[in-house]
């Protein structure tokens, strides 16, 4: 072995990172070459001295990083509520917080630690669960993409005591053809109750599915003042809209204007085209047809 080959290996020899054949060859050379032995001593000296140059940061980034990666949770009634910076990030019902932690980690990639929910947020969750409705829910939509954002905004605008269809939400969110995509966004709503995804029902009738089960959805809607039995009856007749014979305006059956129509003036319609052929125009409040 030549000196230059040996020199590039004496450091690896120091930490026993050489294969045995190489190790033997290097050691053989060192027995005979004084200049390489000197270099070896120098490498060992320098390696030792350099260790004393350790540096430490003035302060740890622990707290700053932790603030960015951990959120808090608290219990409100039967629900677990995760929140950060005064906004609700997730509402879930589960046996144990560990299930919520897992879902939260998947969605937000953050840890959940016990905390005390701010009073305004607690009141919002309680009001929403009791069917009182929340006008401006304080929810965190930072992780949402554009469509998710628009869908959430649309849901919030469905008034308490009324329901809309998935197709309607898709249209109001600006994506009339993406009904399926919109429906799956609604199904994945991380903040149920306060963002009223329960107010969206299938066009075909019935209350449809819900994250906490159809029965919960039905009860919640009834608590908000929706006549679910009447909705079922209309669905059986394939009636989607109700028109008024006096104003010649047609609405969703749960629209606050539709509820005021006297029984004798109620005119049922199966679809919007039928209503318009009869000379009816869509309601400006519930917007059964694109404005």
């Amino acid at each position: 072995m030549q000196c230059r080959t040996v020199l590039t290996r004496i450091d690896a020899l120091r930490t026993r990172e050489l294969a045995s054949i190489e190790k033997t060859a290097v050691e053989q050379h060192l027995l005979t070459c004084y200049s390489c032995v000197e270099s070896q001593a120098d490498v060992v000296d320098l390696a030792d001295a350099i260790k004393s140059l350790a540096v430490v940061p003035e302060r740890s980034c622990r707290e700053a990083v932790k603030e960015q990666i951990a959120d808090s949770f608290d219990r409100v009634g039967d629900a677990w509520v995760a929140f950060s910076n005064g906004r609700i990030r997730m509402i879930a019902e589960a046996e144990s917080i560990d299930d919520v932690r897992e879902a939260y980690a998947k969605k937000h990639g953050r840890v959940l630690e016990p905390g005390t929910i701010p009073e305004p947020l607690r009141r919002q969750v309680e009001a929403a669960v009791n069917g009182e409705g929340v006008a401006t829910p304080k929810v965190d939509l930072d992780a949402a993409n554009d469509l998710e954002h628009d869908v959430m905004q649309t849901l919030v605008r469905i008034p308490r005591g009324e329901v809309r269809t998935y197709a309607w939400v898709a249209r109001q969110a600006g994506r009339p053809r993406a009904v399926r995509a919109v429906a799956s966004i609604i199904a994945r709503n991380a903040v149920p109750y306060v963002v009223p995804c329960h107010r969206v029902v299938p066009s075909s009738g019935g209350v449809g599915n819900y994250i906490f089960g159809s029965a919960t959805k039905r009860a919640l809607l009834e608590r908000e003042g929706v006549n679910v039995d009447e909705l079922d009856a209309l669905a059986r007749e394939h009636v989607r809209y109700i028109g008024s014979r006096t104003t010649h305006i047609f609405c969703f059956p749960t629209c606050r204007d539709a509820k005021r129509i006297q029984e004798k003036n109620r005119m049922p319609f199966r679809d919007a085209d039928d209503a318009m052929e009869h000379g009816y125009r869509p309601c400006r409040h519930c917007q059964p047809v694109a404005a």
Binding site: V56, S60, C61, R62, Y104, G109, V111
Partner: peptide, 18 residues
């Protein structure tokens, strides 16, 4: 997302990385 896991990582690697 085990509680405390990332803190362990920070404690272990912050100084060497710095």
């Amino acid at each position: 997302c085990e509680p405390g896991a990332f803190e362990r990582l920070i404690d272990r690697f912050e100084q060497p990385l710095f």
